[in-house]
Amino acid sequence: MSNRLSRILTTVFVLAVVLLPIYWLVSTSLKSNREITQEGTLYPHVPTLDNYVRLFTEKQFGSYLTNSLVVTFFSVAIALIVGAMGAYAIARFRLPFAAERKVGLFLLTLRIIPPVVILIPVYLLMLSLGLLDSWLGLIATYTAFNVTFCVWMMESFFREIPVDLEEAAMVDGDSRFGAFRRITLPLAAPGLAATAIFAVLVTFNEFLFALALTATPRAMTMPRGTATLIGRIDTDWASMAAAGVIGALPIVFFALLVQRHLVRGLTMGAVK
């Protein structure tokens, strides 16, 4: 009996620790600034959606959201296509000097280096190409980062698919690439989905490069726009909270929708 009680208490405690901060964010976003600073209420006594309306009418959150969706979509889609081909080549072919294994290791090494290390030269590169504050500059950067781990993750998925199936297709007259496209790719679909989901998560949430590479609502992404807003309005807690909710909502919703596929990506393939 006491065992069961301690189990319930622990569960409730963990849930509270995780959810209370989020409750506070949402509840603050529904209060007016006067209620927040002067009354210090524990829940919104006069709930209002004004803070949200202001984000879209006065603060260009519509543009941020569009930019985020466009940039995320293209950089993930390109990285998946390009990465799937590269991963397949590494998983299936034996090249001279074990080149395919060296390429794989090389991409993993790039993945380990903290992104902040190449922030300055990437900034200088985009500056010289005239791609600062543009979708293209962000898409190029994010695609490259995504390729490094897309290849790494998808390679392991391709390895799990028996070679015999492709051989059979080739005996039936398929080309090598045709066998890849018609047989292997569909079989690896769940793995590709897991990779895509993780890529979406990382790309949508990215802040550092968005901070350095964008400067106006023309190209600012959600995290970048949110951080700019709260930099300017130090005491406008209500707007800050609403911005936080809007900034997090799409990705949390997405993550909960696909949570079964999430774990493998989050742990860099350490967990199946």
Binding site: L25, P223, M240, A248
Partner: peptide, 23 residues
């Protein structure tokens, strides 16, 4: 419990910081 525990690590890090500023 497992579902709820996914939330902190998928929320945009910038928003996590906002959450803690509000705390």
């Amino acid at each position: 419990l497992r579902t709820v525990l996914i939330i902190p690590m998928v929320i945009t890090p910038v928003v996590v910081a906002i959450v803690f500023r509000l705390i």
